[in-house]
């Protein structure tokens, strides 16, 4: 609530006495400001790319772990590690020891393919952030989808096979509809977190180069703590809230519907 209140004021922390009511100035500044449009766009691109890729990968890996393979439990244990690692630590490891153009492992491994001395973090900043975030969120999606797959009754699949359904048909007609609510839940909860991505951007690119990877939380951080413009930062916060409310409403609907299905059982 205080955020909304401050967002109507012109207030610079470095200028005492600059606290005064400015009405909708902060908002009209937002609409015309290039930075904020870039930040909204970057937030959307980052969120959509990360969620789409991690759901697809998560579904594939969950299906693998749900089939007959050796060492399932151990595989799952190793898979969830990227999600548990401190995000700041993970981002730093990627940036300095894996992607560093001189000492990193990946450029070294990619040398035979002519991608040797690519400076991933500076040349392809958004790709780098997306890759690191997908690495982090795929295990999350996998866990939720795997739980969905395991709640499936194997006899139904067996029956379908006896009736002559191919593996692909069985997956599309039986498995997918069953795990759909789990996929939706994972995607929505995940996007609520990914919209807020701050740690890895701070560590990997610091929003740059230029504003290429500045998303809303990072822009707010810059405006509030590098520019000390509280009113404008609050207005950015309000925009972030509006975006989040849209996603959250969908997420809550899915949550409640899963709870209701559970209750009916």
């Amino acid at each position: 609530m205080l955020t909304i209140y401050y967002s109507f004021f012109n207030w610079n922390l470095l200028k005492p006495g600059s606290f005064h009511f400015s009405g909708l100035d902060n908002y009209s500044a937002l609409l015309t400001n290039e930075s904020i449009r870039t930040a909204v766009l970057n937030t959307v691109v980052l969120t959509v790319a990360v969620i789409a890729l991690s759901v697809v990968l998560g579904l594939a890996i969950a299906s693998l772990l749900n089939s007959e393979v050796f060492g399932k439990g151990f595989m799952r244990t190793l898979m969830i590690a990227p999600f548990l690692i401190m995000p700041t630590a993970g981002a730093l490891i990627w940036k300095d020891t894996l992607l560093n153009p001189i000492f990193g492992l990946l450029p070294y491994l990619l040398t035979p393919f002519g991608l040797g001395r690519v400076d991933w973090v500076n040349q392809y900043p958004m790709v780098t952030v997306v890759v690191v975030e997908v690495w982090r969120w795929t295990p999350f999606m996998m866990l939720i989808i795997l739980a969905g797959l395991q709640s499936q009754n194997p006899e139904i699949l067996e029956a379908a096979r006896v009736d002559g359904a191919s593996a692909l048909q069985a997956f599309r007609r039986i498995t997918l509809p069953l795990v759909r609510p789990f996929i939706e839940l994972g995607a929505l909860l995940g996007s609520l977190f990914v919209v807020q991505t701050f740690d890895s951007i701070y560590m990997l690119t610091f929003g740059g180069p230029g504003e290429d990877t500045t998303n809303l939380p990072f822009l707010l951080y810059i405006v509030a703590f590098q520019g000390f413009s509280i009113g404008q930062a609050s207005a950015i916060g309000v925009v972030a809230v509006i975006i989040t409310i849209i996603v959250a409403t969908l997420a809550l609907r899915t949550l409640f519907s899963i709870f209701q299905v559970e209750a009916r059982r």
Binding site: L220, S234, G237, V241, T244
Partner: peptide, 15 residues
Amino acid sequence: RFLPFAASLVPLYLL
């Protein structure tokens, strides 16, 4: 819980 951290940062900082 779903409120973005960014939104509450400014008031919390001032507080």
